[in-house]
Design a protein around this nucleic acid. Structure first.
Lengths: 161, 161
DNA sequence: TATTGTTATACTCTATAACTATA
DNA sequence: TATAGTTATAGAGTATAACAATA
């Protein structure tokens, strides 16, 4: 559309809208594949522990944007399921360090296989040009988003707003 | 990579992987913005009702991949919050038809504004070329995914596998 | 005294089973 | 009798408040 040339400021809004729409569709698509045998909340913990090995409970709670009591109970169940392991910190006996177990890693790998299979069903129906555009656009998106998420994790601990 | 030219079958896998990564990042990004004042489950109902006006409770449960009792209670709370309205079907007095209230629609609009704002923070840091690639790729993705989701909704009622 | 984690209690969400009303 | 929806009951997830252990 010619409008785009006259109003370049509009373009990011367009992209935001289509990205949000894609995310909503994906939520439905993946919701059907489910995260079994772990719940969505438990899976979220596993994702975080994968990227923050040996984190303590309060930090994990902050990364989840949750509270220490909720996170403690979540870890109780994850530990009972053999997906997460607790360890008393060697430097501060008040702290508990969490980490993924081998089973936890295996569960994540399996989940990713199932999610990507669901994605493949959609991607296979797209043209090669559209797939390549999607790949390039998303790679750039991930690069920026990953940085923001790591920054945000630090802020979470300092203020709730 | 030259490999891509020799193994075109690999390319959709690459795209599936980067799409899955982007979705995981977005989950964290949007998880911080939250769906308040409605819960994630309640918001999911609102999204569905927006696209399936005057659906009955069993169909809504099927679309959620949930059960009638859970869905009934969910609607109790949504109705109490003034986000959803119940109506006895004029053709079958056993059936209850659900629909979004004006407040429900307003909540969805507000949520979308907040989510898109969070997206904008990421998109603004991308190059214009990357944003346009993302837009084109995602538009094609949405077109295909939307069709699959509507097909899948019909199957949900007939079998659980 | 401040910080880390847990326990106590309450509400939402989810499921299965039993029940009511209508077809 | 079959179907639509609700109620009964139980367990997971979340929150705030009160508590225990350690620094």
């Amino acid at each position: 559309m010619i409008v785009t040339a006259f109003r370049p400021r509009r373009e990011p809004n367009e992209v935001a809208r289509v990205t949000a729409t894609a995310a909503e569709l994906l939520e439905v698509l993946w919701g059907r594949a489910s995260t079994a045998p772990a719940s969505a909340s438990q899976t979220r913990v596993l994702f975080i522990l994968e990227h923050h090995e040996r984190v303590n409970l309060r930090t994990l709670a902050a990364l989840l944007a949750s509270t220490p009591p909720s996170t403690s109970r979540l870890c109780d169940r994850l530990q009972a399921a053999g997906l997460v392991e607790r360890e008393v910190s060697p430097t501060d006996r008040r702290e508990v360090l969490l980490r993924l177990s081998g089973r936890g890693r295996a569960l994540l790998a399996d989940l990713r296989v199932r999610r990507e299979r669901a994605l493949r069903d959609v991607l296979d129906q797209m043209s090669s040009a559209d797939r390549l555009a999607l790949r390039d656009g998303l790679e750039a998106f991930c690069a920026v988003a990953a940085v923001r998420i790591h920054d945000g994790a630090d802020e979470t601990g300092s203020r709730t707003a």
